[in-house]
Design a protein around this nucleic acid. Structure first.
Lengths: 115, 115
DNA sequence: CTGAATCCGCTTGGATACTG
DNA sequence: CAGTATCCAAGCGGATTCAG
């Protein structure tokens, strides 16, 4: 976990997940354990370098566990820790808002077409 | 509002508020209307350029209203729209999580000192 | 007071190639 | 497969100055 915190809880949260990639990683891992390659594909387009760096950062912050299997070919699995899982309410709120927003945009486009 | 959306609600939300500054602006404006200078001070340290550009972006996204008063000295007030206000649950979730996180860190530091 | 304009450095991310 | 290493481009944000 991070020791340097802001006095403001919102800012504290921002320190940990103020990042497009981290939010997307969270979204994926909330569905369950995933391998490196699975993550890469499901997130969309991320270079391995970027994905790795963000996963490492989330490990340091205690959000993600990394399990290495001594196999050939190699397998590495990423899982949310309890702390990482506790971010679910935020993701849920984002999902709810995004859903509403999409509906409003769709409605607006429809009205525009009817003019 | 933005017309280009992602299929994923979470990503849609990220398009609008995936930004440290925007979240902080939201936090401030959820308390009510504020002037440019007030925002600047309460957010911490932001150059006027950066604050302006983010406010403009949020205006375009329909989150913020900007009201100009023809006075000397000039006064400009920023207020959340209904859409902007509807982001409150996300901010609340972030606040809750940040509060818990701060408590955990404090507890951990205490334990460390007692060792 | 509220910005707009300019310059500039740094971080972030993308592409690519390579290794265990 | 799961990264690491390198290089490079673009964008973002900071500082500063100036204007209405």
């Amino acid at each position: 976990m991070r020791d340097k915190l802001s006095a403001c809880p919102v800012e504290t949260t921002l320190l940990v997940i103020n990042d497009r990639w981290k939010v997307l990683i969270l979204r994926e891992l909330l569905d369950g354990t995933k391998r490196f390659g699975e993550l890469r594909k499901s997130i969309g387009t991320v270079s391995p370098k970027v994905l790795t760096s963000h996963l490492r950062s989330m490990e340091e912050d205690g959000l993600v566990d990394r399990e290495i299997f001594a196999e050939v070919p190699p397998r590495v699995e990423y899982t949310l820790t309890e702390l990482g899982d506790s971010l679910k309410p935020i993701l849920d709120a984002m999902k709810d808002w995004g859903t509403d927003y999409q509906a409003k945009v769709k409605l607006k486009l429809k009205e525009t077409n009817e003019d």
